[in-house]
């Protein structure tokens, strides 16, 4: 979407989009930290909004943040002329969703809370959590590929 440098070794990568997308995510998390004094951790905020968790920001603030996610994504999708990524089939989505839900509650966070907010704060727990879920994700994709399991059409 954004022009700029590309990586000759990885012609399919979109480093500029990635970098600017990352900066937007960082600004969003910075606003949550410096504005509201809280961590922009999506799994925790989702649990808070739905009443699964009793701690954290107000329920109304949690809903505002969650509603913003698709709003922001829609703006980018429209600006880029539409996005049509492939998604996994329902069985894979259900299994993955359950694992993500259970795992983020037990692990107290996900890619945003641990991976962005915690790692940038050099939190020991977040660094360990991030290394763990990255390693698990890498192993999962490697094993599924080795087994010939095609997830995305």
């Amino acid at each position: 979407m954004i022009a700029g440098f590309t990586l000759s070794a990885f012609p399919d990568a979109a480093p500029m989009d990635g970098l600017f997308g990352g900066i937007l995510i960082g600004l969003a998390a910075a606003l949550m930290l410096l504005g509201a004094g809280r961590i922009a951790g999506v799994s925790g905020i989702a649990a808070r909004a739905t009443g699964i968790s009793d701690s954290g920001m107000s329920t109304s603030s949690a809903w505002m943040f969650l509603i913003g996610l698709p709003v922001g994504a829609a703006i980018v999708a429209i600006a880029s002329g539409g996005m049509e990524p492939s998604f996994a089939s329902p069985v894979f989505l259900i299994v993955a969703g359950l694992l993500v839900g259970v795992g983020t509650r037990l692990g107290s966070g996900c890619t945003s809370g641990h991976g962005v907010c915690g790692v940038s704060r050099l939190s020991q727990r977040s660094i360990v959590a991030t290394l763990t879920f990255m390693a698990a994700g890498i192993a999962t994709v490697a094993i599924m590929n080795a087994a010939g399991l095609e997830v995305l059409p």
């Binding site: 999506v42 799994s43 989702a46 996610l69 998604f87 996994a88 894979f92 989505l93 299994v95 993955a96 969703g97 359950l98 694992l99 993500v100 839900g101 259970v102 795992g103 983020t104 509650r105 037990l106 692990g107 107290s108 996900c110 890619t111 945003s112 641990h114 360990v128 959590a129 991030t130 763990t132 879920f133 990255m134 390693a135 698990a136 994700g137 890498i138 192993a139 999962t140 994709v141 599924m144 997830v151 995305l152």
Partner: peptide, 17 residues
């Protein structure tokens, strides 16, 4: 918990946000 989350993330390519 983080390991379970990572497996789910790898299966569908989606995390919560």
């Amino acid at each position: 918990g983080s390991a379970l989350f990572g497996v789910g993330w790898g299966i569908a390519g989606l995390c919560p946000g």
